[in-house]
Simulated scan of single mutants.
Amino acid sequence: MTPDPLAHRSLMHEVIGAIPSPTLAIDRFERIVALNAAAKALLGRNAMGQIFTTALRHPDLVEAVERSLRDQTPRSITYQVTESGSDVFYDVHLQSIGDTGPLLLSFLNVTDLAQAGQMRRDFVANVSHELRTPLAALMGFIETLRGPAREDVAAQGRFLNIMAGEAERMNRLVGDLLSLSRVEAEERVRPTTRLDLRDVLQTALQNLSRLAADNNVTLQTDLGQAPLQVLGDADQLLQVFTNLVENAIKYGGNSQSVEVTALNCAHDPVLRGPALQIVVADHGPGIDPVHLPRLTERFYRADSHRSRELGGTGLGLAIVKHILNRHRGRLKITSQPGQGAKFAVILPLLHDEP
């Protein structure tokens, strides 16, 4: 019995239509003879029946298709397009159907993998950069102490103090990297411990009282009288508020005040329910709004020189963001140059059971 070519073509359309990722078929005359809905969305609804070079404009991909049509050899290539202003990456696999059948192209979206790879490369580069400066300083001072300053007691004391500071800087960076790693590992595990955030805040403020006094900063609190009940990890939330209040003390300027205020919100539009808002406000030089969306990125600093002078690693707010993500909360930052800054921690409010 002679095979029915129409039945075969109908079956090919049904199979390609059932594949969720963009998939299309190109015949030996270089025309697109079948494509599914996902491929139409990627290449355009008029791609059907066109010569493939009209729809596929990536030179390397066109060359791969031409070669596979000639020799029926399977190939894979990365295909990049721009969608809504963003780069999207596809791994495209080319496979001939039988000896004389059409060439099947399937597109696998690997944008997340590409972005994750770029993030890893950026992270390694940033860590290397952050470590290189103190390491270079330590190596330079060691060489000086071995040579010109071998008998200079005064210089030795001065250099050793600087070396201790650089070593402490590396220690803080390694500590923050380990902390960030732990927080990211637990980010999808929601805390189940019921706690009163008032206790966490009071501990953070007590721990930072000496730093505030050294900087002539007054810590003012308005936490109300009602219990501030949340489900949370006390150690991680202590880390959040210690980081925010410490930043406010250091960057808010000497002889200023830092206010910590608790507010209840009957309905937060983002959390879609009752929320507790803890605001840490300072009266320092403020932050240019252009920096605000990126402040929680790893190693991003609005003022790199000042941050390093004050011992910042560039990871504190990234750690805060991941901790709040774990607690199903969020961080809202508002500031204007010359008007100080406000960091609002917003967490789901836990009501007492009736």
Rank of each mutant, 00 (worst) to 15 (best):
N254G: 07
A18P: 08
G44W: 15
V280S: 01
L35D: 00
D27V: 01
S209F: 06
T261Y: 00
Q277V: 02
T2N: 12
I97P: 01
G17R: 02
R188I: 15
E151A: 14
G284Y: 01
A116S: 09
T73Y: 03
Y90I: 03
G49I: 06
T73F: 06
N161W: 09
Q229N: 12
P134Q: 04
H13C: 04
L138E: 02
L178R: 13
A7W: 08
H267W: 08
L195F: 07
G101D: 01
L244M: 08
F89Q: 04
A136K: 14
L244E: 00
L197F: 02
L205G: 01
G49V: 04
Q202W: 02
H13T: 04
L238T: 15
R28V: 09
D87K: 13
R70I: 10
G140I: 03
G17S: 12
V62W: 01
T242A: 04
P293Q: 07
R190P: 09
V189Q: 14
R9I: 03
Q256I: 04
Q239K: 07
N215W: 05
R31V: 08
L331H: 12
V230A: 09
L331V: 10
A212D: 10
S128F: 09
R57S: 02
A34W: 00
Q229M: 15
G85Q: 07
A37T: 08
D60F: 04
R9W: 01
V81T: 14
K40V: 12
A281L: 11
D199C: 09
E187F: 10
D303E: 13
D91F: 01
L238M: 11
L43M: 12
V270F: 11
G286D: 11
E66K: 15
A164Y: 15
R182A: 12
R190Y: 11
T53M: 07
L113P: 04
R198A: 01
V153S: 06
S128T: 10
V320R: 00
